[in-house]
């Protein structure tokens, strides 16, 4: 916790010297210290092999670090993946209701709450559809509603829009920012797409590869609504891309 003028600003995620090595392999992550303020939107950016997904698993508590500590406000974070990972045997509404049920919400409230969450992502009309009857973008919106249903302070997103077409991705960026501005959950968003990171985040953290360490970070002051085509977004993207390329080049020299 950081003390500023007598007020405490809560940290949603606090990583201190986190390292991860899988048995017999080279270190995947090394000395990662990062804190995410409550309500902050942080993008983790890196080429493949930087251990982005491993880091998210550590934050989510699905895996334990071999060094350092992970602290999470509320002790729990909701996860979203590249594939929607909705359960195909349940309708959109039932998928959301399952998250509510496993969180312990009484049966009577689940139905109404699931409808409310689906209407947040503007999919109340699709509540009775099964995942295979929905488009990729709609599935990710249901997955977002399911993640919100977990009631966590922290939302972890692992390249959630990477498999979508450009138009749908753009719409989902707008949707995500709208929801974030509305609910102010703390977000850690992993991507390898620089423009996506600049489009969304308040802070972009660049990771090195093999092992993953924090190379640099940028604060993004561009006001919302942003667009990928905005000059300011493009300019910062060019700068960050240059650093990312430099990181990748280092691996070409052996």
């Amino acid at each position: 916790m950081t003390l500023i003028t007598g007020q405490t600003i809560r940290e949603a995620v606090a990583l201190d010297g986190v390292g991860k090595t899988f048995e017999g392999g080279p270190p995947i992550l090394e000395d990662i210290s990062l804190s995410v303020r409550s309500g902050e939107f942080v993008c983790l950016l890196g080429a493949s092999g930087c251990g982005k997904s491993t880091l998210l698993n550590l934050i989510a508590g699905l895996d334990t670090p071999t060094a350092g500590t992970v602290e999470l406000d509320g002790g729990h974070a909701a996860l979203m993946f590249q594939e929607s990972a909705l359960f195909p045997w349940l309708t959109a509404a039932r998928n959301v209701e399952l998250a509510l049920r496993l969180r312990g919400m009484p049966r009577g409230q689940r139905h109404t709450e699931a409808r409310r969450l689906l209407s947040l992502v503007r999919l109340e009309h699709a509540q009775h559809k099964r995942p295979h009857e929905l488009s990729g973008g709609m599935r990710q919106r249901v997955a977002l509603a399911r993640a919100l249903a977990q009631g966590s302070e922290v939302l972890l997103m692992d390249e959630p829009f990477a498999a979508l077409d450009a138009i749908t991705r753009d719409v989902l960026h707008e949707e995500l920012i709208r929801l974030w501005q509305h609910a102010r959950f703390s977000t850690v968003f992993v991507t390898h797409n620089v423009r996506e990171a600049v489009r969304l985040a308040q802070r972009v953290v660049l990771l090195t590869s093999l092992p993953g360490r924090i190379a640099r970070e940028w604060t993004v002051d561009i006001p919302h609504p942003r667009r990928v085509e905005d000059a300011a977004v493009a300019a910062l993207s060019v700068e960050i891309t240059e650093h990312l390329r430099e990181e990748i080049r280092r691996h070409g020299q052996t």
Partner: peptide, 18 residues
């Protein structure tokens, strides 16, 4: 602005429905 997003989404949804 918001309204535009809602309509854009509705358009995408109806084009993509299986």
């Amino acid at each position: 602005d918001n309204n535009g997003l809602a309509r854009l989404e509705a358009g995408l949804d109806s084009l993509a429905g299986a």
